[in-house]
Design a protein around this nucleic acid. Structure first.
Lengths: 339, 339
DNA sequence: TCGCAATGAGGAACCGGTTCCACTGCATCA
DNA sequence: TGATGCAGTGGAACCGGTTCCTCATTGCGA
């Protein structure tokens, strides 16, 4: 006996009227509505969202595909997505993308296509045309965060200009030997963040006429990664850079720790800048370009909701570039020491 | 026209036979089965999990209620839960618990009771009897991680003996002025982790006859929290402790950074121990008691699956205490300097 | 040779909602 | 005053699977 039928019988109305009274769709008199509502309250009726989904074809659930949850950027994005979805009355189903190809395919070919989700947000990964097509063919909106993906809407910062801007900043302070410690191009989940940041860095160097071999070193995208990379790069005083553009704040913090370890004064002997706005940046006095991942997540959800809303025609894809904030903290950037 | 009906028509069988052939339940001849399977493959049939859930009453989805995803412990636990669920063919729906009471109630009274989840894992929060009752009344298994909750199964480490053990270790090295920098009792989501760790610490002090006022300082559960707390505690050389038991590795790392800042040698002048096994512990040479949150998450899922499996009678509740590993890293613990 | 069990398959009910359609009053308008 | 229309309601179909029940074969043991 379906639960709503119980409510209906208790209120002395038909199932259809009970449904209308509770959902607010269609004509129901005020008296009937309140009778149904109090009947529902009496027996503690909670509608089955499964049954409702089957009938309407809407799950009010959004799938989130994300490679990590234990990294700063991803965790922040996820929180933004979650809060925006919950506020809109949507659930969030989490699919963590492993580097395992078979699992990835399983997510896109099967898990996301079972009518469990109304839309998909992918974070920090690029999608190939097959993956995009497989979802758009089902009419499911997709939004990407963290980079540009052809044929779908994306939310991201401009990675190339971010690193270009930071490099320009160091150049303007008078630095001439500037290095980039960034993510490993191969480690990136076939996404272009690391490549973009490196490209922006090199553009800035080239413009300033400061290009040099050995301008880049790939490191793990973490504090220990930056630490290890910096130990290697800074240990030889003759070739040591006077400034480092880190691929992210965690790398930058690793660099600062390594410099302290080696007795290199920051910023007197070494300037360091990061990208992110990590919670630890302030404590380390790190000059950084803050991106706001939580807001990126929220913005992505907004795009999703626009596309799930009452269909006022197809909503065109958007490529949204989120603003960043340059936060100068004097303890990590300074002009190079005169030699 | 339901999709499985299409498959059935294409294969020249009835809907029921098609369902049996694809799901493997009931008698179907080998010839019929392969005819149905190839028909399904031909039209790219993917069953609607919504419809299946409605028919069977099983969603193959587990709700996870968690207060943070951007903190080490919680992120690690979540990864463990996710991987275990996916391996078992379950989905994960994420509900982040805000400190907002109304939202919390909404999750337990409504979101988790709509037949969307088969079971619930709660991480790092205590449940009151109403919340437990509201879910168990629906026959939904619940498992808690991170502390003990009456009437349900839980997975956690023994927090009191963890801090007692670490304190004993410092005592055995000869320290007599030992402090605990731990989480704020009020900040904890009405869970007892902080209280337990403080209690274990004080038991050990008492046993060693080293109890003293001002043995504890509440700090934020983070690196900046430990840093700020340690700056305050260590700045007065006359009252300075020779050893600190941190409530977690992040606090411990903050302490180490503060000590460096103040020119206090670690471990020569100050020993520091943490609890967690954080990714940064090794880099900072931190002696710690490693817990393995990922495994805790996996273990919790295992308990859930035991309770969702073929009902071989009710499975009794279990209170599982997970093992911890003591990792001594010489750079953060040493005997106190003779004075 | 008969009877019963196991196998194989179809029809229909069912899961619990939503919504289309038909019908009844009653007010409105020409 | 009769046509029109809308508020209000119930019945039934429907969403897309699963499963119970029925029935027809076939095989096997007694």
């Amino acid at each position: 006996m379906s639960a709503i039928a119980d409510v209906a019988r208790l209120a002395g109305v038909s199932k259809s009227t009970a449904s209308r009274a509770l959902s607010g769709n269609g004509y129901v008199s005020g008296a009937t509505r309140s009778r149904v509502q109090s009947a529902a309250a009496d027996i503690g009726y909670i509608p089955s969202s499964i049954a409702s989904s089957l009938a309407t074809g809407l799950t009010r659930n959004v799938g989130v595909v994300i490679p990590f949850v234990n990294r700063w950027f991803f965790a922040e994005v996820l929180e933004g997505i979650e809060s925006a979805l919950i506020s809109a009355g949507y659930d969030l189903t989490l699919y963590r993308l492993h580097d395992d190809t078979a699992r990835r395919q399983h997510i896109f070919d099967y898990l996301l296509r079972r009518k469990r989700v109304d839309a998909v947000v992918v974070v920090g990964i690029s999608l190939n045309p097959l993956e995009v097509g497989s979802l758009t063919a089902l009419g499911k909106p997709i939004v990407g965060i963290g980079g540009e993906i052809p044929a779908i809407s994306t939310v991201s910062i401009d990675d190339a200009s971010a690193s270009r801007f930071l490099t320009d900043h160091l150049v303007s302070l008078g630095h001439t030997r500037i290095m980039h410690l960034g993510g490993d191009q191969h480690e990136q989940m076939d996404f272009a963040v690391h490549t973009q940041r490196l490209a922006g860095f090199r553009q800035a160097l080239a413009t300033a006429g400061l290009s040099h071999p050995g301008d880049f070193r790939a490191v793990a995208y973490s504090i220990p990664g930056g630490y290890a990379g910096a130990l290697a790069v800074l240990s030889d005083p003759s070739s040591r850079p006077t400034a480092i553009v880190a691929g992210c704040d965690e790398i930058a913090i690793g660099v600062i720790l390594a410099a302290r370890q080696l007795g290199i004064a920051v910023p007197a002997q070494l300037s360091v800048v990061g990208i992110d706005g990590h919670a630890l940046a302030e404590m380390f006095g790190l000059t950084t370009l803050e991106q706001h991942p939580t807001e990126q997540g929220q913005r992505a959800v907004q795009l999703i909701l626009d596309r799930l809303g009452p269909h006022t025609g197809a909503v065109p894809n958007e490529r949204i570039t989120m603003p960043v904030d340059f936060v100068v903290r004097r303890s990590s950037t300074a002009p190079p020491r005169a030699e």
